Simulated assay, not measured.
Amino acid sequence: MNFDCEKLNSLDGNREDHVLGLGNLRVLMLRKLPKLEALPMCNLTSLDRLVIRECPQLTERCKKTTGEDWHKISHVSEICIDGVKTPEN
Rank of each mutant, 00 (worst) to 15 (best):
G83R: 03
G23F: 09
D82G: 01
N43A: 01
K63R: 07
C80R: 01
D48N: 05
N89W: 13
P40C: 07
R61L: 07
P87Y: 02
L25C: 11
L44V: 07
D17P: 00
L30N: 00
L44T: 07
P56I: 06
M29P: 00
T45Q: 13
L30C: 02
L28A: 04
L50I: 05
D69Y: 06
D17T: 08
L36E: 03
S77W: 06
Q57F: 09
D17H: 08
S10E: 01
R15M: 15
M41W: 10
S10I: 03
E37T: 05
D69G: 05
S74Y: 12
V84N: 09
V84L: 11
N43R: 00
T86C: 13
Q57H: 08
K64L: 04
E68M: 06
E6F: 13
H75I: 00
G21Y: 11
H75D: 00
V76Y: 02
H71N: 05
M1S: 12
L30I: 00
W70R: 01
V27I: 11
G13A: 11
L47Y: 05
W70A: 03
T66H: 03
G67I: 00
I81E: 03
I81C: 06
C55W: 04
R15G: 15
D4Y: 13
K72C: 09
T59E: 10
T65L: 06
A38K: 08
S77K: 08
L30H: 01
H75E: 00
G21E: 11
E54D: 09
G23S: 14
V76T: 01
K63H: 07
C80S: 08
N9F: 15
T65C: 09
K7L: 15
C42I: 08
V51T: 03
C55S: 05
L36C: 07
D69L: 06
H75P: 00
S74M: 10
F3I: 14
K32I: 08
L28W: 03
L39R: 02
L39A: 10
E78D: 12
A38S: 13
G83K: 04
P34H: 04
M1Q: 12
R15W: 15
E16N: 14
E78M: 10
K35C: 13
N9A: 13
E88I: 08
N14G: 14
L25W: 11
L44Y: 10
L44I: 05
K35E: 15
K72T: 07
K64A: 10
C42G: 07
I81G: 06
L8Q: 11
P34K: 02
H18S: 14
L36G: 07
W70Q: 00
T45H: 14
L22T: 14
W70L: 01
I52E: 03
H18I: 14
I52C: 04
L11P: 04
E68Q: 08
P40F: 10
V76N: 00
E16D: 14
H75C: 00
L50H: 06
L25A: 15
L8R: 06
V51F: 03
C62A: 04
H18F: 15
N43P: 01
E54P: 00
N89P: 14
T66Q: 05
N9W: 12
E16L: 14
N43T: 02
C55Y: 01
V19S: 11
V84A: 11
D12H: 04
M41T: 13
A38C: 13
K63E: 09
R61S: 09
L50N: 05
G21T: 10
G13N: 07
D82F: 02
L25K: 04
N9G: 11
G23D: 12
